[in-house]
Amino acid sequence: MPSEPLRRLGAALALLCAGTLAATAEPDCRKIAHDGNRYTVCTLRADQDEIRLFHSDAEGNLFGSFSSIDAALAAEGKQLSFAMNAGMYHEDRSPVGLYLERGTQSGPLVTRDGPGNFGLLPNGIFCIREHSAQVIESRRYAENPPDCRYATQSGPMLVVDGALHPRFLSDGTSRYIRNGVGVAADGVTVHFAISDNRVNFDSFGRFFRDELNTPNALYFDGKVSRLHAPSIGRSDSGFPLGPIVGTVAPVE
């Protein structure tokens, strides 16, 4: 019969192996229908999956596409197992609002009202921490900035503390393919969603609140929305993007 130290070592090794398997597993990407609309959702765990933001390489050259990021990751023996556009950008593809990559800020925090969807307050920030993630309203972030390794600001918030954005209309006529992110109450389960048909903000917000049960969710963009999900055979292409969020996994 194994001694107590051996039993403990065996248990520790089992946990380590389980964590490694979870970290390298393909993201859980699936189709979900809700209230007459169709969505594709990829669910990750911030305590297991390596979630990063991408904008430019070390020389300052814009990535702009999923394939460019994949090519750069190949030098690390890694690949994108999931990705989507992650925030609004100017014509030169620089981020609109706060942008942090590996703790280095390259975009300003914007907390004032403004034009367009970004300025439709409250807007918010998707913050990736060491072993957790959160969607936080921008002014709340400004009051007490969390320790984010990566962060991207966008707007509007879709869900704020369990409530829909106050300016959403159930009969809103602005309908686009839209994408966004929501974080569950546990602070580690992260749901990335893109609509498969044109939806308004109210429908998209209710999907995050009522179907995905995320108390806080953030709109990334519309019209330009794209998804990279090899596990379901999908990788959208098009003109160059600005900020991109992705999950990094070893090349098998």
Rank of each mutant, 00 (worst) to 15 (best):
R139A: 10
R140V: 07
R140Q: 09
Y141D: 04
Y141R: 02
Y141C: 05
A142R: 11
P145I: 05
P145E: 09
P146N: 13
P146S: 13
D147P: 07
C148R: 03
R149Y: 13
R149Q: 15
Y150F: 15
Y150P: 05
A151M: 03
T152N: 11
Q153A: 04
S154F: 05
G155S: 14
P156D: 06
M157H: 09
L158H: 12
L158S: 13
V159F: 13
V159G: 10
V159L: 12
V160H: 13
D161C: 09
A163V: 05
A163Y: 08
L164H: 02
L164K: 01
H165Q: 08
R167Q: 12
L169V: 06
D171R: 08
G172N: 14
T173C: 04
R175G: 04
I177P: 00
I177H: 05
R178T: 03
R178F: 01
R178V: 00
R178S: 04
R178Y: 03
N179A: 03
N179D: 09
N179L: 01
G180Q: 03
G180C: 02
V181N: 08
G182M: 01
G182V: 00
V183R: 06
A184W: 05
A184S: 13
A184R: 12
A184V: 06
A184G: 07
A185D: 14
D186F: 08
G187V: 14
G187W: 12
G187S: 11
V188T: 14
T189R: 13
V190E: 00
V190N: 04
F192K: 01
A193M: 06
S195A: 00
S195M: 00
D196Q: 15
N197V: 04
N197R: 11
N200K: 09
F201C: 02
F201G: 10
D202M: 06
S203K: 14
S203Q: 15
S203V: 06
S203R: 15
S203T: 11
F204P: 03
R206G: 01
R206F: 01
R209G: 02
E211N: 03
E211G: 01
L212Q: 00
L212E: 00
L212R: 01
L212G: 01
L212A: 00
N213Q: 12
N213T: 09
P215N: 06
P215S: 08
N216R: 15
N216T: 15
N216G: 12
A217R: 14
Y219S: 12
F220T: 11
F220Y: 15
D221W: 08
D221V: 05
G222N: 15
S225K: 05
R226N: 04
L227E: 08
P230H: 01
P230F: 00
S231M: 11
S231P: 07
S231F: 07
S231T: 15
G233T: 11
